[in-house]
């Protein structure tokens, strides 16, 4: 692109651009780039705040990750959570978007109900769900009692705690993928459906042959966005199970948090952050490729 500098804009382009960009770049540099570099540097040190130890250790922290069973299990738990939450959220969001994609006023109201919980903070959401899942007085226990079942403490059950966290997350985060699906549905040309109608195609065939293929890109996008979001799960776990029962829900970000803020081993925690960054950058790159419109 040829660079045209217009006479009426008296300041030279680069000086003006610098002045416009400088305020943001100052914050960006100081609080994103510098911490990133500092984190990489920290990850190469054995750095413990208790006892004031700081010594270069090369790849020592990264090798330690390989041998650390707690790191491995927290990575596995994050992956488990992601594998449970992402398909569930995607499927439920797709279902809700499909049935609510009607221009009726009732549906506009219903859609906003599903979006609304997304406006709550993680602390409010977890308070609500701790109460709902409370085994002695919660809504869930009453519901089970009404059906004749004994109350279960889901969050204290090693097998059920993770699914309970997934349900909480589903309730909290359904709005965003629903919006993406609704936007995707709006873009499917109406003519396709009219043609299907003329062919007397059944609703199921129409869904399978028209809706689903047209949404392929949106589905992929939602999956990647949700993987990025859910792999970094932290607040729900910290506030609802603290990683329990029996460490069965301790996730990666929580382990990073505990290693730095409970054990004060900031060097080791920084190396785990770097690993998280690497995984997330790859996923973000995929997202960027997917969401670029028009190819």
């Amino acid at each position: 692109m040829p660079v045209r500098i217009r006479r009426s804009f008296r300041a030279p382009g680069s000086l003006a651009a610098f002045l416009f960009l400088a305020p943001f770049l100052a914050f960006y540099g100081a609080f994103l780039v510098v911490p990133l570099l500092l984190g990489a540097w920290m990850s190469l040190h054995r750095w413990e705040l208790l006892g004031d130890l700081r010594a270069y250790c090369g790849s020592g922290n990264y090798l330690r990750m390989l041998r650390d069973p707690l790191f491995r299990s927290s990575l596995v738990h994050s992956a488990q959570f992601t594998l449970m939450a992402v398909p569930t959220i995607t499927a439920v969001a797709l279902f809700l978007a499909l049935v609510m994609n009607r221009p009726h006023r009732l549906y506009a109201a219903l859609r906003s109900i599903f979006f609304a919980s997304g406006a709550l903070s993680v602390t409010a959401v977890t308070l609500i769900w701790l109460m709902v899942l409370n085994p002695s007085r919660g809504l869930f226990a009453r519901f089970m009692a009404a059906l004749g079942f004994a109350p279960v403490d889901l969050l204290a059950d090693p097998r059920l705690a993770m699914p309970a966290l997934v349900v909480t997350t589903l309730w909290w985060g359904i709005g965003f993928p629903m919006v993406l699906f609704l936007a995707g549905l709006q873009q499917i040309p109406r003519e396709l459906y009219e043609a299907a109608k003329l062919d007397h195609a059944s609703p199921w065939t129409t869904f399978r042959r028209i809706t689903l293929p047209s949404l392929r890109r949106t589905i992929l996008l939602v999956l990647v966005v949700e993987v990025i979001l859910q792999f970094q799960v932290f607040g729900q776990v910290l506030l609802m199970t603290r990683g329990g029962p029996a460490n069965r829900t301790r996730v990666l970000v929580q382990y990073i948090y505990e290693t730095s803020f409970r054990d004060w081993q900031v060097g080791y925690a920084a190396s785990m952050s770097m690993l998280l960054l690497l995984v997330m950058s790859v996923a973000s790159f995929v997202q960027l490729r997917l969401s670029r419109p028009g190819d």
Binding site: L32, L36, A269, S284
Partner: peptide
């Protein structure tokens, strides 16, 4: 910078 998650830099930032 969009690819940098908060969770990956909160620790150096805290330092």
């Amino acid at each position: 910078g969009l690819a940098v998650p908060e969770q990956a830099i909160f620790l150096p930032l805290h330092r």
